[in-house]
Design a protein around this nucleic acid. Structure first.
Length: 513
RNA sequence: GGCGCUAUCGUCUAGGGGUUAGGACGGAAGAUUCUCAAUCUUCAAACCCGGGUUCGAUUCCCGGUAGCGCUACCA
């Protein structure tokens, strides 16, 4: 099996899914996985994208047995390093009369195509240069005339088998004699892919179905070369919500984007596996990479296009957030707090292919932020939402709380003023609160006293108090929240975290105005 | 335009000549919690259309329609 991306951009979810299916099949069959870089398009290929590709693949948890970074028996694995090979086999085809030299100029061909189209004919190559005597052609080339090399397409229909789509047949009348080597000496994609797949002993070509229509050309090439035709499996396209091909304007589409959003690699892999594949029975949804390897089969791939559903990815991400080790979730979570500038950390970095970011943080800070992550992670779809969710810890604003439309109802309850009054007094009188040492137990005791003194309970009691503490009537449990606020008020942070007492104080002041 | 591929709830899918057409996400309702999230329970929600084959088609075949792809000296 092979994954053969072009280094022309970041790894896209479509390509990632192709890579994943190749990998799953290779590992399931105990086959060999090859990474090959298709960089014959010199204009668009860039070396830095190759690194990015390798990192993204590693981050997803995929690896390979042969590739440009690790070598292998069929090296080199970068097409730009294999040009001699392509030329050699192209010449061989010419000598065997399976290909021929074509002296038609680009402009000339374009005109022919336009004319054919205007007359309602197929814009396929006329085959004009097929008729040139091979010896004559060689003389012209030696004399310095520019020429490309074209494959002679056979006179019979081209058939091949696809594991996903079944038997496919193309009439030879719609396939032009394709150019395999340009007049500048550079080979074209449809040719190199065949040379490489054959020479690298690829038995199963698993790729996007945008290549399905190219396959007859490639099959003709295998036959001309006298090499066995591999099995094909063409994967359906991944679409955006508007049923158009997924592209950048649909938002996050590169693997790196998802990592930066705090989507866990296992969640993304699991989601991608379910796009176009389902286990037998179709009931199970959650699969680890190892379980996927065990269950995967090409026969169960769906031929129809699939719409990428962000919501389902988020759901899976939440499942994995719950099952990942808390310290790992905390590491990623803290990284987002660092990024948001909520904690000072100069050497924070997330090495590209790594599951977890690395940074040095004092023990106090690490523990404190870990508690915040543990408290809030169940509330988020992606870990990058954590700083926003924690905003009430860092950005307490009593004035805003009093004027928030969301709070209007609770603020207007007749019992609320009594609750406010008693609660404020209790906190201001409390010694541990004034030291910023309020415990969950002590806080609970105060609430119970307020409850006893005002006769207010339940919602009517908790909502106003929650507004005083967090600025909002809904939020996490006080039991966990109070110690976090108190501890935070003693830490050295870019922005001071207010203790419970400081919050009450600010609220009282704002309310008096 | 030509050729190719595809078509089951809004979405991802299971299934397959006779089924109450199954699961999941999302949605709705309820339970629980001080609240939100989570969790649990329940509900709504689909076989593109038309022919043919058949006792019977959502399933098989043909056609239509729609979507997507390919039609380059791009990959």
């Amino acid at each position: 099996m092979r994954f053969a991306p072009s280094p022309t951009g970041h790894l896209h979810v479509g390509n990632a899914r192709t890579a994943l299916f190749n990998w799953l099949f290779a590992r399931h069959q105990k086959g060999t996985m090859v990474l090959r870089i298709e960089d014959t398009d010199v204009e668009r290929s860039e070396a830095r994208f190759e690194d990015q590709l390798v990192w993204d693949l590693h981050w997803l948890g995929l690896d390979w047995d042969e590739g440009p970074d690790i070598g292998g028996p069929y090296a080199p694995y970068r097409q730009s390093d294999r040009l001699d090979l392509y030329r050699e086999h192209a010449e061989r085809l010419v000598n065997e009369h399976k290909a021929y030299l074509c002296f038609c100029g680009e402009d000339e061909l374009q005109k022919e195509r336009d004319k054919a189209l205007a007359e309602g004919r197929q814009p396929i190559y006329s085959g004009k240069c097929r008729a040139i005597d091979p010896e004559e052609a060689k003389r012209r080339r030696t004399a310095g005339e520019a020429c490309a090399i074209r494959l002679r397409i056979p006179e019979h229909p081209i058939r091949f088998h696809d594991i996903v789509h079944g038997d496919v047949e193309f009439s030879n009348e719609v396939v032009s004699d394709p150019i395999i080597l340009r007049s500048n000496g550079m080979p074209v994609y449809n040719y190199v892919v065949v040379i490489d797949d054959a020479l690298m002993k690829i038995t199963h070509v698993i790729r996007g179905d945008d290549h399905l229509s190219n396959t007859p050309k490639q099959v003709a090439l295998y036959e001309a070369l006298g090499w066995p035709v591999p099995e094909f499996a063409h994967l359906s396209t991944i679409l955006g919500a508007d049923r158009e091909r997924l592209s950048k304007r649909h938002g996050a589409t590169s693997i790196a984007n998802f990592r930066d959003m705090g989507v866990l690699p296992e969640a993304l892999v699991n989601y991608l596996a379910l796009l176009g594949w389902a286990p037998s029975g179709g009931m199970r949804e959650i699969f680890s990479l190892q379980e996927l390897v065990k269950e995967f089969s090409l026969e169960r791939i769906t031929p129809s296009a699939a719409v990428f559903d962000m919501e389902k990815l988020y759901w899976l991400n939440r499942q994995y957030i719950k099952t990942w080790p808390v310290e790992d979730i905390a590491s990623i979570g803290i990284w987002f707090f660092v990024k948001a500038g909520l904690v000072e950390c100069n050497d924070a970095d997330w090495p590209c292919a790594k599951r977890l970011p690395v940074f040095q943080l004092s023990n106090d800070l690490r523990i404190w932020f870990s508690q915040i992550v543990a408290l809030l992670a169940p509330y988020v779809d992606r870990l990058d939402q954590l700083p926003e969710k924690a905003s009430f810890i860092f950005n307490y604003d009593a004035k805003a709380a009093l004027s928030a439309p969301d709070n209007a109802e609770v603020l207007g309850w007749p019992q609320s003023s009594a609750v406010f009054a008693r609660f404020i007094v209790k906190i201001m009188e409390d010694e541990s609160a004034s030291a910023g040492q309020l415990t969950a137990e002590q806080f609970k005791k105060i609430i119970n006293e307020v409850k006893a003194e005002t006769g207010v309970k339940g919602k009517e009691l908790f909502h106003p108090i929650r507004i005083v503490i967090t600025g909002s009537h809904s939020g996490p449990d006080f039991d966990k929240l109070i110690p976090i606020l108190e501890a935070g008020s003693h830490l050295k942070l870019p922005k001071h975290v207010l203790s419970v007492r400081e919050r009450v104080q600010e609220f009282a002041t704002a309310a008096n105005k």
